[in-house]
């Protein structure tokens, strides 16, 4: 399995994402610069956290027009896995690859802490190694994580089970609609989440609960390849 981690000017969780992929999946991961025009060789594309283009204008607004984003859209359309974490989630919503938008935190404060998440849907390529309804601990670190969709869109997303993670334990750190922390697209191959699973892949980091995002992807990829070979 081949993974690309996209680097924009201002990405700062790129190396952590590479280390998470290598340590959890036992697979290689390559850093690719935002000018890369072709990502067809990769099975998983990670859009990491950070402050691409200084978050000028809006978080993710300028990165969304980087040359690599046409390749990310093409990859998503082909069914390759795309995982957007934090700023990566913001970029994917700006690009229209995921519904909704991320606003300034309701508190106006940057929040950097371990939070409880409820696994809302354990039946996606990114969450199948979790148990539906379980509570996991994964850190957040963001100022613009306040997820918004209008009520009609939210109802459609709930019906299609596109909400994968919600903030739990009655603590919503940013004001997100319906406590939403992570969503998947309708096809199920693009996930965006504000919490950082790559920072929670070992007990020494405070939690190993994020590791299952990566192991889920690997399991899904293996399944798909067994089907191809069968």
């Amino acid at each position: 399995m081949r993974t690309a981690v996209v680097q924009f000017p201002g990405s700062n969780c790129d190396e952590d994402a590479v280390k998470a992929v290598v340590s959890v999946m036992g697979a290689s991961a390559e850093l690719v610069w935002h000018t890369t025009a072709d990502l067809s060789a990769y099975d998983l594309i990670v859009i990491p956290g950070g402050f691409s283009y200084g978050d000028y204008l809006r978080s993710g607004a300028i990165a969304r027009f980087s040359p690599v984003m046409a390749a990310v859209s093409a990859a998503a359309a082909r069914g390759q896995y795309v995982l957007g974490i934090c700023n990566g989630f913001q970029i994917l919503t700006e690009a229209g690859l995921l519904p909704g938008a991320l606003r300034r935190n309701e508190s106006l404060q940057y929040r950097c802490e371990l939070v409880d998440l409820k696994v809302e849907n354990a039946n996606t390529a990114f969450s199948r190694d979790y148990v539906a309804g379980e509570t996991v601990r994964i850190p957040i670190a963001h100022g613009d994580g306040n997820y918004y969709v209008d009520e009609a869109q939210l109802a459609g997303m709930e019906a299609r089970r596109q909400i994968v993670f919600r903030y739990a334990s009655e603590y919503n750190p940013n004001g997100s609609v319906a406590d939403i922390a992570g969503v998947v697209n309708e096809s199920g191959n693009v996930l965006g989440m504000m919490p950082h699973p790559e920072r929670a892949v070992h007990a020494l980091l405070g939690s190993a609960d994020g590791a299952r995002v990566f192991s889920s992807i690997l399991t899904s990829w293996r399944d798909a390849h067994e089907h191809v070979n069968a």
């Binding site: 204008l57 809006r58 607004a61 300028i62 027009f65 909704g100 606003r103 918004y148 969709v149």
Partner: peptide, 8 residues
């Protein structure tokens, strides 16, 4: 295209 996010 760029200056606003029409979602919000």
């Amino acid at each position: 295209q760029l200056l606003t996010n029409p979602v919000i």
